[in-house]
Simulated scan of single mutants.
Amino acid sequence: MRVELDEPKCVASGQCVLAAPEVFDQRDEDGVAILLDETPVEELLDGVREAVGICPAAAIRLVAQ
């Protein structure tokens, strides 16, 4: 699975970082999410799925490779 983050849509809520801190972080200057790992290991996918579901801007997608 591959994670896609649409940075321009991000509203800097930080929910993705709380759900999957190994996969997401936030820029210091504006809080916009950044993707740390585009292809996380299976053990991290539950957190990524949670991040997808709770992102208020729908800026995160999980797609099959």
Rank of each mutant, 00 (worst) to 15 (best):
C16Y: 07
C55W: 03
L62R: 00
G31W: 12
V32H: 15
E42F: 02
P40K: 05
A57P: 05
G14W: 11
T39A: 12
V63P: 02
L35A: 10
C10E: 03
P56N: 08
V52H: 07
E50G: 08
R49H: 02
D30S: 06
D6M: 05
E42H: 01
P56G: 14
V41H: 03
E22W: 13
L45N: 00
D25L: 07
D46F: 01
D6R: 04
I54W: 01
L36D: 05
L35K: 03
I60G: 04
K9V: 10
I54F: 05
E43L: 00
Q15S: 11
L36P: 04
Q65I: 06
D30K: 11
V41W: 02
A51E: 00
D28E: 14
D30A: 12
G31H: 09
V11L: 15
R27F: 09
D30M: 04
A12N: 12
I54G: 04
A57K: 10
P56F: 09
V11Q: 08
D6E: 12
Q26P: 10
L36C: 14
V48K: 03
C10I: 13
E7F: 04
F24Q: 08
E38K: 14
L45F: 01
L5M: 08
R49F: 08
A58K: 13
A51V: 03
I60E: 08
C16K: 07
C10Y: 05
G14N: 02
D46T: 02
P21W: 05
E22V: 08
